[in-house]
Computed example of a mutant assay.
Amino acid sequence: MQKLIVEVNEKMIDLSKLGFCIKERPSIPTPERVIETIDIPGRDGDLHVEKGYKDIDITVELNFMDDHLKDRIRVVKEILLDCDKIIFSDDQEFCYMVNFTKIGDIENEVDFYGSFEVTFNCKPFSYKLSTFKFVSAIDSFRVDGYKSAPLFKITNSQGDCYFILDNDNSKKIGVNIRASVVYVDCENMTCRSDDGINLLEYMVGDFIELDKGIHRITAYGGMSKVEVMTREGWR
């Protein structure tokens, strides 16, 4: 039986254990590439500029059967509206990152059975779940997916410390402040301390994306450890 698993605040919830099952495996849209076409006089052919990918909608029909139908629906609606990721049981190594959720009308002709559609608006790619864990970034690390918007964790910043990625000075990231832990989030473009204090004004360098391949980090100044969560997206 196909199952839908959702993540809410880093907690995985199998909806089948709450009595909600997928009627049939939904089709997953292929992300649509956004291309800007520019006609340049004197140039053979147009200039095509890739500008990223559009979000995708994944629609799932859920069936449910329960003697306490109304109460169970209230519970699952809260879960669906708050979820951050969705995972299908036949592909549990990958997830889809949810932007927002829309819940359709609930159809139930009898008091203990019903169905409804849920549409998850998601980021364009599927993401490998194992890449949502921190790994050491000193020396080298590998990205296997199409694209990565990494989360860096800098431990024991002594101020005026930074690292350079792939020996490219344009890929320099650091902080000019003493802190036990600093997170630099290239997906959400934030820089914060371990207790949530905004450190963006102390950040050095720009947020980056990582392409597929091996990446190398060289650290400078006072930092005892650099870790990375690659959060790899696959098309």
Score class of each variant (00 low, 15 high):
Ile208Trp: 09
Cys161Gly: 12
Gly174Thr: 04
Leu199His: 02
Ile208Asn: 05
Phe163His: 06
Lys212Gly: 08
Lys147Ile: 14
Ser157Arg: 01
Val182Thr: 07
Leu199Gly: 02
Ile164Thr: 13
Ile164Gly: 04
Glu187Thr: 07
Arg178Asp: 03
Phe207Ala: 12
Ile208Val: 14
Gly174Leu: 04
Asp185Pro: 02
Tyr202Lys: 14
Lys171Ala: 10
Asp185Arg: 01
Ser170Thr: 15
Ile177Leu: 13
Asp211Phe: 05
Glu187Leu: 07
Phe141Val: 09
Ile197Cys: 03
Asp195Pro: 03
Met203Glu: 00
Val182Arg: 08
Phe163Leu: 06
Ser148Val: 11
Ile173Glu: 04
Glu201Gln: 13
Phe141Cys: 08
Met203Asn: 00
Tyr202Asn: 14
Pro150Asp: 05
Cys191Ile: 03
Val182Trp: 08
Gly205Val: 14
Phe207Lys: 13
Gly159Asp: 08
Glu187Tyr: 05
Cys161Glu: 12
Thr190Phe: 01
Asp185Val: 00
Leu210Gln: 10
Ser193His: 06
Arg142Ile: 09
Leu165Asp: 01
Val184Phe: 01
Pro150Met: 00
Leu199Arg: 02
Arg142Glu: 12
Arg192Gly: 02
Ser193Glu: 04
Met203Ile: 08
Ile177Gln: 11
Phe141Lys: 10
Val143Pro: 07
Ser193Phe: 00
Lys153Asn: 11
Phe152Asn: 00
Asn176Lys: 15
Asn198Cys: 04
Lys212Thr: 11
Val182Tyr: 06
Arg192Gln: 13
Val204His: 10
Arg192Thr: 14
Ser193Ala: 06
Cys161Pro: 04
Cys191Glu: 00
Asp166Trp: 10
Leu165Lys: 09
Asp139Gly: 07
Asn167Thr: 13
Ile177Ser: 13
Ser157Phe: 02
Ala137Lys: 11
Ala179Leu: 00
Phe207Val: 11
Gly205Leu: 05
Ile164Cys: 03
Ala149Tyr: 12
Val143Gly: 08
Ser180Thr: 15
Tyr202Thr: 05
